[in-house]
């Protein structure tokens, strides 16, 4: 794990009227960290991602970014229906007026192959399945090698085989990437994450920043057992 700090979250609070979603959350992310955010449904994972992406105001506390602005991958693909798949993937280049190098095109084709999308570049999003759209959004977000990416349930509609090869390719093509991803699927965590920010309650407050093996051992011991489901995980 690199020592340079990428993100520092200090005593973060977020309320929606009287509903407190995030309470006093503190954690750090270093350059090259791949962190999973694991919490029950409705706990505020998406809210945290949105706050870190600058899309949602916070109620209290603060966070500091020490690197470039993060790229965000939303839970929904958010493709443009009037643009073909290729146009959607290359849209960030068009918007930033960045030239598309031969190397980028080579990587683009590689991504298409890994995601089984090579035959669909001239199709429109409505002609693709949910999983294919999600893969398109993943390529769009990752093709230009972001230094820091926030991913909200990035693999939720992608099948297990595709998911494994996509995750391998993320790690191979972007070995330096810093990423935070939310998930409620425990199997995704050892595939991609190095550490887990683990929340037991429905409010993001106290968190345990665990190594993946530690998380796996805790998870298999207590969380999967129906009788022990409500017990506190010792950290």
């Amino acid at each position: 794990m690199a020592a340079d700090l990428m993100l520092e979250v200090n005593n973060l609070y977020k309320d929606y009227n009287s509903n407190q979603v995030i309470r006093g959350l503190t954690f750090k992310v270093h350059c090259g960290d791949r962190m999973a955010l694991f919490a029950p449904s409705g706990a505020g994972k998406t809210t945290l991602i949105r706050i870190l992406a600058g899309l949602e105001p916070l109620t209290g506390g603060n966070f500091k970014l020490f690197g470039p602005e993060p790229v965000i991958l939303f839970q929904e693909p958010r493709l443009f229906p009037h643009l073909m798949i290729e146009e959607n993937i290359l849209l960030p280049y068009r918007i930033r007026k960045s030239p598309i190098s031969n190397e980028t095109l080579r990587e683009y084709r590689q991504w298409l192959e890994i995601c089984d999308l090579s035959d669909f570049t001239n199709q429109y999003p409505y002609q693709l399945s949910g999983g294919m759209k999600q893969k398109t959004a993943l390529i769009r977000g990752l093709l230009h090698h972001p230094a820091f990416i926030l991913m909200d349930e990035p693999f939720h509609s992608i099948g297990p085989a595709s998911k494994a090869s996509i995750i391998n390719h993320i790690k191979e093509a972007n070995p330096e990437i810093t990423l935070i991803f939310t998930t409620h699927n425990v199997e995704e965590i050892p595939l991609l994450a190095q550490s887990v920010l683990f929340f037991k309650t429905n409010t993001l407050s106290f968190s345990a920043n665990l190594s993946v093996p530690h998380f796996q051992s805790l998870f298999s011991e207590s969380y999967f057992q129906p009788k022990a489901a409500s017990s506190t995980v010792a950290v």
Binding site: A53, L55, E69, V71, F74, E76, R78, L91, I95
Partner: peptide
């Protein structure tokens, strides 16, 4: 509006 939010994350200009 979700697409507009995505465009915002790309720091799109008003014209874009």
């Amino acid at each position: 509006l979700k697409q507009e939010e995505y465009l915002k994350t790309l720091n799109c200009s008003r014209w874009q």
